[in-house]
Amino acid sequence: MNDMTEAPSMSDAAGLQDGNGAANPCRADGPSFADPNSDHYRFLADIPVRLSVEVGNVSLKLCEIMNLTEGSVVELGRQANEMLDINVNGTLVAKGEVVTVDGRFGIRVAEVVTKNVGGARVERRA
């Protein structure tokens, strides 16, 4: 979207209010944000988000970190055959597996997680 000609107007948002006049975009009878033809989707589609993949994690004491040298191996708390977490702005959205594409790492989405979608939070970076 290069200009604001496709941006939703206030009249478009009229159906997105609850009985108290507050915005309620999650109403079941309101427009769907998941519909790629909706004005809301086009409005949000160009917003950049950070996608990250968590291979695993571990808690270490500071002295253990200070003792790391070249060649040290840190064992992560995830089994090698487990799916990896795919996060968008810090919120788990899917599970996947590592693939290689032209010599680069990639991730194949194997399962989309729907339970966290409603509780998504915004990550603010300075």
Rank of each mutant, 00 (worst) to 15 (best):
N24P: 00
P25F: 07
P25M: 09
C26H: 14
R27Q: 15
R27W: 04
R27S: 14
A28E: 14
D29G: 10
P31G: 09
S32P: 00
S32R: 14
S32A: 13
F33T: 10
F33H: 11
A34N: 09
A34Q: 08
D35E: 06
D35M: 08
P36S: 13
N37H: 11
S38Q: 04
D39V: 15
D39A: 15
D39E: 14
Y41K: 07
Y41C: 13
R42L: 14
F43C: 13
F43V: 05
F43L: 14
L44Q: 13
I47G: 11
V49R: 07
L51Q: 12
S52N: 11
S52Y: 04
S52Q: 10
V53I: 10
V53N: 01
E54L: 11
E54D: 10
V55Y: 09
V55T: 12
V55C: 12
V55L: 15
V55P: 01
G56V: 04
V58G: 03
S59M: 12
S59G: 13
L62P: 01
C63Q: 13
M66E: 11
L68A: 03
L68V: 04
T69R: 08
V73W: 02
V73G: 03
V73F: 04
E75L: 07
G77T: 07
Q79C: 10
A80D: 09
N81T: 15
N81L: 10
E82N: 12
D85N: 14
I86M: 03
I86P: 00
N87W: 00
N87Q: 09
V88Q: 03
V93E: 03
A94M: 01
K95N: 08
G96F: 05
G96C: 08
G96E: 07
E97N: 11
E97L: 09
V98E: 09
V99F: 01
T100Y: 06
T100Q: 13
T100N: 11
V101A: 12
R104I: 07
F105W: 10
G106W: 08
I107F: 07
R108V: 11
R108M: 14
A110S: 13
E111G: 01
E111K: 03
V112A: 10
V112Y: 03
V113N: 04
T114Y: 04
K115H: 12
N116G: 01
V117P: 00
G118L: 06
